[in-house]
Amino acid sequence: MTDLSNRFEPAQPVPSAPPILSVRGLCVTFDGPGEGLWGPPKKVQALDNITFDLARGKTLGLVGESGSGKSTLGRAILRRLPLSNGRVFFEGKDITAVKGEALRRLTRNIQLIFQDPYTSLNPRMKVLELIAEPLLVHGLVSSIDEARDQVVELLRLVNLPVETIDRFPHSFSGGQRQRIGIARALALKPQLIIADEPVSALDVSVRAQVVNLMQDLQQELGLTYVFIAHDLSVVRHISHDIAILHRGHMVEMAGRDAIYETPEHPYTKVLLSAVPEPDPSHRRNGGVNAPKTVPTQTLSFDGVGCRYRTCCDKAGGHCQREAPPFAKHEGGHWAACWHVGMT
């Protein structure tokens, strides 16, 4: 394993409290399709050497397109996937090898909010059962009815009417269902919440409701979020830091304003320019710069050099020969590109 001590320094001048979550050199490999029918499965590197720290009470926005490994990273932090390399520390404790009952207990501290509020709630369970279930399975209450008071409290917390407690999920709108999902995640009073594209399946008009709620909850309860998103439009409002993933690599990480105002990696710039703006003055000039080739988002990319080079207009000889390290640049900006700082 590479020595990371010099590659990763605390972004702020020595924070007083240790980070709640530390990820060091995390790698995840999947078995891809084999050669032919009987060939051995090809290894696909879904995540390669991911390293970051997350301070308590802060939000890390994790942005990447499909195939970037962003959801895999979320699941890896939750320890639902085997790592092929690297370590995950939660509150200073190494949770890389946690298994079985200890892993189940860990779920009290790290929770997940799902992308699709339509399929992530069991259609046959009432709101009460859904929200009380975590309390029940961790032995915090002995019956669903005993949890009623706590569930009412949680419903208030996520701004859902208390009368809804005995209803089934199908009678709720998408935004309301996502609130139920959030209440369920909060039931165990976790400290870290991984939100896996919590608003992607919602209408744009409802996204703001959920994002604002998550911000309120963070302030009120001191939660720490890893907020996964597939574009840069919503994350600005909720994140303190933003990390950009591309094909299993972290290509850039910085404070949120730095990402939006002084993006360094070419991929970040592409992502920024792709976000549609609700402003008719940003009209598409149609065809003038419509690219003729599509950068494929596949994970199976091997060979040396920068993984972004095939879609990069700046790619030079150096990019072909050697992959750029994920290194720290001026102003706490982390990026993996040979061109950063060379303007």
């Binding site: 639902r80 779920t107 997940l112 259609p123 399975v137």
Partner: peptide, 16 residues
Amino acid sequence: TPFVEAAEVVGCKSAR
């Protein structure tokens, strides 16, 4: 389906 994963994430045991 996500709701089965959701049950695993909140800590349900296999039997449940």
